[in-house]
Amino acid sequence: MLVEVKDLTKRFGKLTAVNDIHFSIPAGEAFGLLGPNGAGKTTTVSMMCGLVAPSSGDVVIDGHSILHDPMAVHRSIGVVPQDIALYPTLSARENLTFFARMQDVPPSMLTSRVDAVLDIVQLADRQKDHIETYSGGMKRRINIAVGLLNQPRLLILDEPTVGVDPQSRNSILETLKELNRQGMTLLYTSHYMEEVEFLCTHIAIIDHGRVIADGTQRDLRLQAGNKDIISVQLVREADGAVRDRLAALPGVDTVELRDKTIRIATDQGRSLLAGIISALDDAGCPVSTIDVKEPNLEDLFLNLTGTSLRD
């Protein structure tokens, strides 16, 4: 395992911000930490980076304990904080050069690494401009570029798209997906379900300082106990024979028929579509529209906590 979070707890006086959290991340994985604001994501990340001392527990990254060898941990990680952590009166290049020096990038590689990350975030043409003249999205991209300077084994991103326009957000997520494809391990925290679903293969859902669910996207959907729902709108009304024909299809759990609408619950989602359309065609019931709704993490979070992720 590249990352092992062991029974991590943080108390601020009487408040327990993180309560006995544990999870592991294998090398090369994109791991999502999903939870609403105030769930304990940033505190967990801060402890993993050595910015906040844990009340108990430990974090081991690349074989080094954050408690006993924080400098070794810092050499293995790149951090992209939630806030824009850049010097506004320095240019992008000056910021990147400074942080590269802090990250022990060898002097002989300094220029090439700065050039490389500027290319990754596609801001090489604005490298001499002061950060204070950048748009919010551009600042976010430089913020991420700083985390990539030392080619980290683990890139920790704490809500890196907060306040970013949709276009910049897509660009950032695509960049991160590509980095993960190239082998970089990601730890991505967010309260945006869609981002985590798009980027992460393994997800831990955190609420009130505790991990309440943990697994692959498929595992978590199964945990939710929800089925895929296929809604079929017919051109004309169907009868009970049509319902029975559909119910007999393998993989179909239940079929509800109301006027021109059929609602089919299944675990197999889109793979059943061809069979359903064929069966309806054979029964002489032409299809007007068909729609598949898969259960998502929002549903799971709602099931587990009774509240929405954005509450």
């Binding site: 850049l86 010097y87 942080f99 990250q103």
Partner: peptide, 14 residues
């Protein structure tokens, strides 16, 4: 305030 100090402290800098 601008979080750059925290960022420096996440690098191998004491």
């Amino acid at each position: 305030r601008q979080h750059t100090l925290s960022r420096v402290l996440t690098t191998p800098t004491s």
